[in-house]
Design a protein around this nucleic acid. Sequence first.
DNA 1: TATTGTTATACTCTATAACTATA
DNA 2: TATAGTTATAGAGTATAACAATA
Lengths: 178, 178
Amino acid sequence: MAAPEPHGDTRAPEGTSPLGDDLGFALGVVFRAYAKGAQAVIGKIPGGPRGYQILTAAASDEAGSQSSLAQRLGIDRTVMTYLLDDLERQDLVRREPDPADRRNRHIVATPRGREQLCDAEKQLRLVEDHILGGISAEDAGTLRDLLRRLAERLHGLDPTGNLCSAAAEAASPAAIGL
Amino acid sequence: MAAPEPHGDTRAPEGTSPLGDDLGFALGVVFRAYAKGAQAVIGKIPGGPRGYQILTAAASDEAGSQSSLAQRLGIDRTVMTYLLDDLERQDLVRREPDPADRRNRHIVATPRGREQLCDAEKQLRLVEDHILGGISAEDAGTLRDLLRRLAERLHGLDPTGNLCSAAAEAASPAAIGL
DNA sequence: TATTGTTATACTCTATAACTATA
DNA sequence: TATAGTTATAGAGTATAACAATA
């Protein structure tokens, strides 16, 4: 989503839940609530969720070159160029030359980038607490456990869904897709 | 969704999860898995998820006029026109004149529309089963229950508006505690 | 010739606004 | 004047393709 989110958010209706109150519906509501919260935090970073992903990778020195990073995050390499332009403009990451292969640009986080990332992570934890605020600590633990077990299995079945998409695509109306 | 989701064949880096294995990550993976399956089912309906929502409302005779339906679903009224054009073109819904107010168009589902909706619902149940396949029936029930409780609460934060507003509230910096 | 990164173009989706017809 | 619906225009976002530099 990059941009501060258009306003055309399509959500589920009131009494006419398309999926009734079944799993898909509840899952969607909870996910979108989390996604919205995450967006509020991550929206400040240029490129939104994807900027956050890039920043995370850069901060842990796992970013590598632009194209390898793009491939890993499922971002088009041409889009990666624009995203990095924006991040670099705000001094959150830097493109450094690779002595070994001068075609490559190595992506690294600046001190300012690390700082901003750290802040975002803290705030994301608060969002999480807010979402889980409706149930007991014990139930919250159960939920985490169940979701993690499902996620592990699903991830093994189809590694296509990269994690960022999780918090990340949250913001993208397109990705919400239902 | 909208677009059949790019080619994101992205392998999620195991140890580098931006959010670790916390809630947001697991939630995102599970949601995305469901969304992907749902997309396969609903993608056949013109307008995708929104077409499905419209069809659902129309089939239960709760659609009403175009603009009231649009408002309820959080869809722009101009977009509603296009969506209905597509749905009508495939004989899934009809626009019927309202004798009381000739400005209004009452949206109703055609037999073909009801049939297609019924098929989609059946298939969505299969998707759900697939997602929950990794855990026991008892755990699945627990998960459903917990998610429903969270969803109800999140939804209840703003009973007047649609889910969009509810989620937005969760996203507000104040709610997050900033 | 293949690959990294950049730039230019076209396409999709959506919102804004202007328009018609009813009220 | 206000509202329901339609149509036209413009914008954001993204993918496709053409390009430059390096291998």
